[in-house]
Design a protein around this nucleic acid. Structure first.
Length: 409
DNA sequence: TCTGGGGTCCTTTTCCTT
DNA sequence: TCTGAAGGAAAAGGACCC
């Protein structure tokens, strides 16, 4: 046996977050908009098509900014998905209603969301990461966790060297920038990646907890949202440090066994969750907010058409991705923003639009329809991979003889 | 002219069975 | 037969995230 074994590598987990991802991807396509206030959101029509109609074969990057649609001309109920830093300077930000944003910055250019494009760049940068560091957890279109622990060079300077390599490789290949936090676990890495945005790298060690994490607001913890934060504040707990010093029993009493214990551990920087490198979807859904609130009786035909369309779109998603599910559910949002959901578990998993429509129709019968509706959604859960045989199971699977529902014409 | 869409996970309630 | 306890599954709601 060797008398001087190598020190065991310490766990180093990185969180990588693309900087203003959607906006940056749009600026690759329309570089002439750089530095201008731009918001992304709403709109169902491809902007390229609209611009081509007017400008024919002119390359997209040469179309003058003044012909792009602007926020003050927007009509509808959408929200801002994201905004460039120039637009944020006017107070415009994600999840803000378009109308409010238009008041703050009427001249902001408005680009529709183009998911296909973002997914393309998402695959691109993730491929670059896994070529270098193969253990990666996908956390959505613009975010990943990466295990640096056993990657060559992953321990150097606590992970900073590898983080720099990833940043440079991604930028060279895509022109996009990202921020990376490296820490002993996912919880701290996630917080660290926000420290120096954009293009930041933050390396945190367990010994940095009190100096760098405890001064932060509780809501910086991934998992403490507006509700939990408000409750903590009402208890006089504002920072993660204060949370750490709070009597555990008090947290258990106020938040329940599980959440209380989780909060306590989070405040002490404890998180041993492994990276999840492959996962299956649990549910798929489609929902839509109407241009105007609809009434179950007066607007029955319109609602029926929307309902059918949602079922067809979910069915299409399931079939394309190869899944069937046996819990069929609906979601309604009333004009007062109250939400109601109903679901129904059937004997055999399905992915057929008609069968989904029928099961969802049964759910619809159990929900009050006296108020006007703002949103309607259809969900299929308890998913499993579809075998060919399962995918053709249709109406027979549903244990009901009902042939119509409230939205049927 | 406030407040999208697509998810996951957790807690509580309800219903059914033993 | 009635009552209650206990436990599991399904349903409903809610919080949170990107």
């Amino acid at each position: 046996m060797s008398s001087s074994p190598e020190a065991a590598p310490i766990r180093r987990i990185a969180h990588l977050d693309m900087d203003a991802f959607y906006a940056s991807v749009e600026l690759l396509r329309y570089p002439q908009l750089k530095g201008l206030p731009v918001v992304i959101g709403g709109g169902r029509r491809r902007l390229d098509d609209a611009l081509r109609e007017r400008y024919g074969d002119t390359p997209l990057d040469q179309i003058p900014p003044e012909v792009f649609p602007v926020l003050k001309d927007y009509v509808g109920r959408g929200v801002i998905t994201t905004a460039t830093y120039a637009a944020r300077a006017f107070g415009v930000g994600s999840a803000m209603g378009m109308m409010k944003a238009a008041k703050l910055c009427p001249q902001a250019l408005l680009l529709p969301v183009d998911f296909a494009q973002y997914k393309h760049y998402s695959r691109l940068f993730k491929g670059i990461i896994t070529d270098i560091a193969p253990v990666m957890e996908d956390r959505g279109v613009d975010e990943v966790y990466i295990d640096f622990t056993h990657v060559p060079g992953g321990q150097r300077e606590g992970g900073r060297v590898l983080a720099r390599l990833l940043q440079k490789s991604i930028h060279d290949a895509t022109g996009l920038s990202c921020s990376i936090g490296v820490a002993p676990n996912k919880l701290i890495a996630k917080m660290a990646s926000e420290f120096n945005k954009p293009q930041g790298i933050s390396v945190i060690y367990a010994s940095d907890l009190q100096a760098k994490i405890w001064p932060l607001a509780c809501k910086k913890v991934n998992g403490i949202g507006p509700k939990a934060n408000a409750k903590l504040e009402s208890m006089g707990i504002h920072t993660i440090g204060e949370l750490a010093q709070t009597d555990l029993q008090l947290l258990l009493d106020r938040f329940g066994q599980r959440t209380g214990m989780w909060m306590h551990n989070a405040a002490w920087g404890r998180d041993d969750r492994p990276l999840v490198t492959d996962s299956e979807p649990v549910s798929m859904s489609r929902e839509t907010t109407f241009d105007r609130d609809l009434h179950a009786v007066r607007d029955k035909a319109e609602l029926g058409a929307i309902f059918t369309d949602l079922c067809e779109r979910v069915a299409d998603d399931l079939q394309r991705k190869g899944y069937v599910g046996k819990t069929i559910g609906i979601k309604l949002r009333y004009d007062d923003f109250k939400i109601a959901t109903r679901d129904l578990t059937i004997d055999h998993p399905i992915n057929d639009a008609k069968a989904i429509r029928q099961a969802a129709g049964q759910c619809l019968k159990r929900v009050p329809l006296d108020k006007r509706l703002r949103l309607l959604g259809v969900r299929v859960g308890s998913l499993q991979k579809s075998a060919l045989r399962q995918s053709v199971v249709t109406l027979n699977a549903i244990n009901t003889e009902a042939k119509s529902d409230l939205f049927s014409c």
